Computed example of a mutant assay.
Amino acid sequence: MTIRRAGRDDVAAVLGLLDGATEWLVARGRTDQWGTEPHSTSPRRVAQITGFADEEDGLWVAEADGRVVGALAVGAAMPYVPAPEEPELYVRLLVTDRASAGQNLGGLLLDHARKLARAAGVGMLRVDCFAGGDGALVRYYEKQGFTRDVEFGVPRANDSDWPGQVLVQRL
């Protein structure tokens, strides 16, 4: 597997990874994280991923056998989380191909984020994730060396707030 800087030509593949992850969640009755609709049909999500691709060092993809199997976006903290108290690199997106589960793709992409942070002279890596359901995603990041920081909620129209957890890792 190789990790490379992604560009606009990779946006469709990244959206495909997100669509596949959503299908996987829906098949397991876990619609509270990302809903049921494909990300590739959401103008907001398409614009977000395109924006990540347009940022210098903002979007990275993992490839295996010429196929995109994972994506990582890094940069400034998302606007819905508390601002950092020190310089950081923020993991804005981490998604992997469900067909490649068990190959530690997420861990390898997080290792890449750590390398980027160190190269930038930053001593803190943060990420946020869905904190609802059975808490499996929070536990995943804890297994990757992150510790829980603050909980937050993102308001949703006609629904309860989306429950989130910020996690931090000192480098």
Rank of each mutant, 00 (worst) to 15 (best):
Y80L: 03
E55N: 15
A119M: 05
V81K: 07
D128A: 00
G35A: 06
A117W: 04
I49Q: 08
Q169C: 09
W24N: 11
L89H: 06
Q103L: 14
A113E: 09
V154C: 08
R44G: 11
R170F: 00
P79A: 04
G58W: 02
Y140K: 10
G133V: 02
G20A: 10
A13V: 06
V46K: 04
L105R: 13
R148G: 03
Q103P: 10
S40W: 05
C129E: 00
A76S: 11
V95N: 10
G16P: 07
L89I: 04
T96Q: 15
F146W: 08
V127L: 09
T2S: 14
R28F: 02
R45T: 15
F146R: 09
Q169M: 08
R8L: 15
G51H: 04
T50L: 14
A157D: 12
G123H: 11
A71E: 07
P79V: 01
P79L: 03
P43M: 06
A47I: 07
T22L: 12
A27V: 02
V61K: 13
W24G: 10
E142Y: 05
E37P: 03
L110C: 10
A99W: 00
P79D: 12
I49G: 05
V14N: 08
D19P: 11
G102V: 02
G164R: 03
V26K: 04
P38V: 01
M78R: 10
R92E: 12
L109K: 14
G107P: 09
L171I: 08
P155G: 01
A76I: 01
A12V: 09
G16E: 01
F52Q: 08
Y140N: 10
L110G: 05
L105M: 13
D54F: 01
L167P: 07
L116I: 09
E56G: 14
G29P: 09
T50M: 13
L59C: 12
D10R: 03
H39C: 12
G135K: 06
D32K: 10
P79C: 07
R28A: 06
T50G: 14
T147G: 14
N104M: 03
W162F: 05
S40I: 06
T31V: 13
D32V: 00
F146A: 11
R156T: 04
A13E: 12
G29R: 07
V61I: 15
E85G: 12
D149Q: 08
Q144M: 13
E63I: 02
A83W: 00
M78T: 11
L105D: 11
V68M: 08
